[in-house]
Amino acid sequence: MFERPKTLFAVAVALSFAVSKFSGGVNPYYYDIILSIGINIILAVSLNLVNGHTGQFSLGHAGFMAAGAYTAAAFTTFVPPHHIATTLFFLLALFAGGLAAALAGLAVGVPSLRLKGDYLAIVTLGFGQIIVVILQNIDAVGASRGFSVASGYTNFFWTYFFAALTVYVIVHLVDSTYGRGFLAVRDDEIAADAMGINTTKYKVVAFTLGAFFAGIAGGLYAHFKQFISPDGFDFFKSVDIVVMVILGGMGNTAGVIFAAVLLTILPEWLRTVSGCTFLPHWLRDVAQNRMILYSLLLIVLMLTRPQGLFGDARLFRRTPKFKKP
């Protein structure tokens, strides 16, 4: 099925387009969840490139998302649209957001790539918090009061177009001889180096590309919620995305997509549970606090299935048998 990646991508895009034609009548509550799912797929799949495939533990994905969200929002707010088509204007804004996030990724990535494991996690976490603090102090974008975005350009089609693009890029990047480098870096950096693989370059590519897509997701988010505030991109948002990657199985794209869907719906479902008056009080309290549940979920998962729900099933990976064209 994945032998024809371009066809597959085209099908996904056509499907998003077709579905978007019928999304007018959908209940706004569900529409909201459906767009959130798309955005979370972009976030989780792009973080998976860094944390899953390349084995670097980044805790700053929400920071890159923030960089993209604010850049894209500032773009549509402050740049006069002149006479270009709205769609093009929106795409330019998203691209600017992705670019800003990628630059941030480069800026954090290059100096911190000597760090391993926990140290890298701490540096990226600190970076995420720095972004939040900086944003809290820029008056032009509303500082800690938040930033209202006038235009709600984000729709079903563009959300799922970029979700498909993210999946396409990351799956096919990794699934090539070139892409074995990411996995080699994850498995054994010293051996990778000794096999002539430029490990630093691979880590920088993973960081920058991961951040780029997080920035796109941020831009989509800003023009979907039409209101963004710095605390929306704090440490907890990063943890949300990390949980999706771990739950889906590090490096397993299909699993991570599934986890992104699951963990977007779960909080909504929990909200329903916590509203059910016939349930015992303690249960409603637990349901109300999703961080407690996530922690429990992770502990149980690590004890029973450390490889993630789907582990090595790797629906998107196969040993390729390329035929001569």
């Binding site: 996995l183 080699a184 498995d187 054994d188 051996a191 990778a192 000794a194 490096g251 040993t319």
Partner: peptide, 9 residues
């Protein structure tokens, strides 16, 4: 020091 998660190929 093989790449442990990869196949022989």
């Amino acid at each position: 020091r093989l790449f442990a998660s990869l196949t022989v190929f």
